[in-house]
Design a protein around this nucleic acid. Structure first.
Lengths: 244, 244
DNA sequence: TGGCAAAAATGGTCTAGACCAGTTAGCGCC
DNA sequence: GGCGCTAACTGGTCTAGACCATTTTTGCCA
């Protein structure tokens, strides 16, 4: 079998298949369909499982997307996501896309030990939990959960359904400006909870940004956790030396 | 088969296996060994491939590590990696670990179109390319490549082998303080080039931080790209509102 | 010509091996 | 007791299906 030039000695076959595919799809437009798994297995004289492993890596790398029953397609390019303290709405606008959000679920529940610690509350204190799906140009790019103290923001879960921007809502309706924050960045494979609304495979790597935001008095007012499609979003941060 | 309580209706079997394992390993110490794939397949009355899929996801999630020929083990907890403009050395020290680095390769080559554009050079201008493996407490956590203008930093590839910190070296020997930077954050599965020195599986998701650093005159002096083990490192950033 | 149902095609899940590559343990010998 | 070699055990790769779930296409009928 000759694929993508002679393979290096001892290269796994699935990796050879992957290189072959990468070379092929790099000249295709996003949205183009790729040969089916069974076709590739026949063409490349290998098993469907081996082809699937190569495809799975390309999906994880953000190069391909798969849709069950439909086919495999070349993926769309990524959105650059700046890490600075602005609302989702502002950030999507700054990227040149149209922001929107869909409230998936809201709850009022007791904080519990962990949330209480991070929000400066007692474990019995009530908090709002808000789950939203975030869009750029009607394309889902992130699933987000955030928690805020219920007593400080009464009626928040009703209001949020009418407002596009949480940060704007806190400022306008509750007189609370978010001034400082801290964010943690990790990767995690999408569970069904994120995969389904995002339209990605379970297990697809996501960029998970956890944040703790403070008001101008340094009081924590919001916890958040956002799962970004890592195939559609690149995080970017601007830095200045701390020496000065 | 009864695993981890009754599974939800229509849950894939590999996912049931995964939940079972998660429950089990959450009470184990890092470094503990987990039952072998073949044992799990027999215990859970499933195929080894199904067990492998569950394990693969837990590895990607940073919960487990596998070593060919040896076994599967509970993973060590992650290092928090602050995103601010400091050298690797400073950042590892700030996390309470002992930093060290191993130079893997150095080259002097023509910049080419892409590097030239980002470094403000002509494509023919020479640059140094330096590849290093970075350690925290003798544990490899990142593979790094950086490019710097050769004419501005003559002899850099010789000097870097004697210095632990590139940023300190630029400041002390070349009078260049890095004052500003921009970083992009993505995920990518590890290729053999990163996987091998990092001791992870090919395909394991990594956190890739690309950066462009500037001196106090705003001249780009360094490009860098660092592949972090996403199972060992969590990125963190401190934010301030841009409204003020 | 349009709508509906069924068939076909797609990716997803699962099974059961065989064989390869790396590591560890045990045994034998010095 | 230590060293070297071999066997056994581990994860890694590959094959070849079967069957499931979803989507698309095709054919038929009104």
């Amino acid at each position: 079998m000759t694929i993508a030039g002679d393979p290096p000695v001892q290269e796994p076959k699935y990796y050879t298949v992957k290189r072959h595919l990468l070379e092929f799809i790099s000249s295709l437009e996003p949205g183009s369909s790729v040969a089916t798994e069974r076709e590739l297995a026949t063409e490349l004289q290998t098993s469907r499982t081996t082809v699937r492993q190569a495809l799975t890596e390309l999906v994880e790398e953000g190069r391909l997307v798969r849709r069950q029953g439909s086919g495999t397609y070349v993926a769309e390019p990524k959105i650059t996501w700046p890490l600075y303290l602005a609302s989702f709405t502002e950030q999507v606008q700054a990227s040149g896309f149209e922001p929107s959000a869909q409230v998936l679920d809201t709850q009022r529940l007791a904080a519990g030990t962990e949330l209480a610690k991070q929000l400066g509350l007692t474990p019995r204190a009530p908090v709002y939990k808000i789950e939203r799906l975030r869009f750029a140009d009607a394309f889902p790019i992130a699933v987000e959960t955030c928690w805020l103290p219920a007593e400080r923001f009464p009626g928040l879960t009703r209001q949020i359904r009418r407002h596009g921007s949480l940060h704007a809502l806190l400022a306008d309706e509750y007189g609370t400006a978010i001034q400082m924050g801290e964010e943690w960045i990790e990767t995690a494979p999408a569970t069904p909870r994120e995969a389904r609304p995002l339209g990605v495979d379970v297990g697809t790597p996501t960029l998970v940004v956890s944040r703790q935001n403070f008001d101008s008095d340094g009081i924590p007012v919001e916890l958040g956790r956002t799962w970004f499609r890592s195939d559609r979003v690149t995080l970017v941060t601007h830095l200045r030396s701390r020496r000065r």
